[in-house]
Design a protein around this nucleic acid. Structure first.
Lengths: 329, 329
DNA sequence: TTGAAAGCGTTACCAC
DNA sequence: GTGGTAACGCTTTCAA
């Protein structure tokens, strides 16, 4: 391993000088500069980040905590975060918590032990965060936490839009699939939907799910069609569950969207590839990741941040699990 | 920040002693042990990994380089890697290279600067790796590299199986969509398929794609049906392109699988949710990630490793883009 | 069984 | 403009 000492020796200067050119701060003569640069080149030197981090008590690393990268909602989030951080030469320390408090705790602890400059977390449990203010700037992503920096999409409005679209397109007996209540975005969209439905004149009922897995959604969908055969509109908690419902509906011979309309939530990549392609509420996922990273960067640099909570808009994506409607007017 | 010094002071011992209990190596009296543990508890001390890494010239970090986590093939790979490493308290430094040599170079450099103990790379370009043996144990995943530790699935055999299944199920005019030749697994499956087709009595043609994007596949699919209207069987480079072909086929009114059969490759999560659900060649993706991590762990610990290359088997997943065939016999 | 001290590779302060 | 050196928090000799 070649160190700053070797470079100094090679260039015939002190380590202090080499350090100065490395960080280009402080005076250094042009000739000296050249000598040092040549030495660096010659020895193929590259500074040891660990030593730097130790001295500065802060690394160029950011901790990213996700529930599960395998859930198709998250890869784009992660990408948004990474692309933004990468531009400023920050790197990602990455972990999946499975919403398991112990795992989460363990990851956060090692993030901190590795002296990350900041943390972005898309988890809800946040056992650690709840206890105390974390030692480094932290931004929550997709999940809201009272009094914390947060970037998320307007799930409430999304739920409303979904419900309105379903009603507007003619559903008169709607079933809402309600996801786990402790996941804030899931709860928000549910509340939004119910708010609109309650104020409308359509019949509706709610089926509670304990998870958002495809498998459970399949079960619930069976139940749904058995229990509420008159249902002609379904609001799913997310696209994955919508896919399960869609398949079950097709399996038992329902015409989609003629007999039953379905609206999902998220707009994950697969949604447009389903058949019929899935109408859904789109979250600006990449943008959310990006904005979370930007916010964190500001926090790290102690720049002024206008607001603690950034809420991004969602939008209805009309595809083929909802009926067409005449142009408004 | 509470340091080992604080703990030592609190416990009334030297830092050396605290270090000994931390790493439980060397003699330490039972009473002393207790005192130190209490001090640690009381001060809520947790050792600084950065300082450790600096001294040991080696961290508890592993670099994971992926082309793009947004490509649905990779999340499960990453998960396999992470789950395995996490058990042994290693953490992941994570980056997407987009198969861009500069990005890749930059990531690897920072991995090394952060003194990772090892690297797992699923990239093909590997500008850096090609030059010289990297400074730390490195395992290639999904992509093969001459003379390097590698974990991958048997794409060649997969290509053969796919071709055989298509022929066996009655396709007589087959189009092979060939992905970018520089990506080894993609090339392997192509070669396997062609090998079987060439030895068979069916007609076949090849369409070359410059990428594996859905968008390009859509274009090529249009071309395909225009140029080779007699095609009754399609071998796609992966499931994503298969999905595009499937949609285009449906759009122009082809009956699937009656008029045209399609087989994908990978078995990404969406494949079973397509309509008709996609027959494909399944790669044991999670397992691949896991094995790569296990291999790297062995390398790190300088344990004996039986072989440099681990090849995992693939399998045909029969779904509904291929015709049923009577039981063999 | 314990402690003093050197050293891991940097940076930043202070002299010159 | 430049260099010497303490310090970052830890581990590991080595001596006691």
């Amino acid at each position: 391993m070649v160190t700053i000492r070797d470079v100094a020796a090679e260039a015939g200067v002190s380590v202090a000088t080499v350090s100065r050119v490395l960080n280009n701060k402080g005076y250094v003569h042009e000739d000296t500069l050249r000598k040092v640069q040549q030495a660096i080149e010659k020895l193929n030197y590259s500074p040891n980040e660990v030593a730097r981090s130790l001295f500065k008590r802060q690394s160029k690393l950011v901790g990213l905590l996700l529930p599960d990268i395998t859930n198709p909602f998250f890869p784009e989030l992660a990408r948004g975060v990474e692309d933004e951080l990468q531009k400023q030469d920050f790197r990602l320390l990455f972990g999946n918590s499975d919403e398991n408090p112990e795992k989460e705790q363990a990851y956060i602890e090692t993030f901190l032990q590795n002296q990350v400059v900041g943390i972005i977390s898309a988890t809800q449990t946040s056992g650690m965060f709840n206890q105390e203010q974390p030692a480094v700037p932290t931004v929550f992503l997709d999940r809201t936490h009272e009094g914390r920096y947060t970037v998320y999409a307007d799930g409430r409005e999304g739920g409303k839009i979904a419900a309105r679209e379903l009603v507007r397109r003619g559903s008169r007996n709607i079933t809402v699939l309600k996801g786990p209540g402790h996941i804030s975005p899931v709860q928000d969209r549910f509340l939004g939907a119910v708010e609109v439905l309650a104020a409308s004149s359509v019949d509706f009922q709610v089926i509670q799910m304990a998870s958002l897995t495809y498998e459970e959604a399949e079960e619930r969908a069976k139940e749904l069609f058995r229990q509420y055969p008159a249902t002609d509109g379904i609001l799913a908690s997310n696209d994955m569950t919508a896919a399960a419902v869609l398949h079950e509906a097709l399996r038992i011979g329902k015409a989609i969207p003629e007999e039953v309309q379905i609206i999902g939530f998220d707009d994950i990549p697969m949604s447009r590839l389903l058949f019929p392609s899935l109408s859904t509420i789109k979250q600006p996922v990449y943008e959310m990741g990006k904005q979370a990273a930007q916010l964190l960067l500001k926090l790290i640099k102690k720049e002024e941040v206008a607001e603690q909570i950034i809420q991004l808009p969602v939008s209805f994506v009309e595809r083929n699990t909802t009926r067409k409607v005449k142009a408004d007017g």
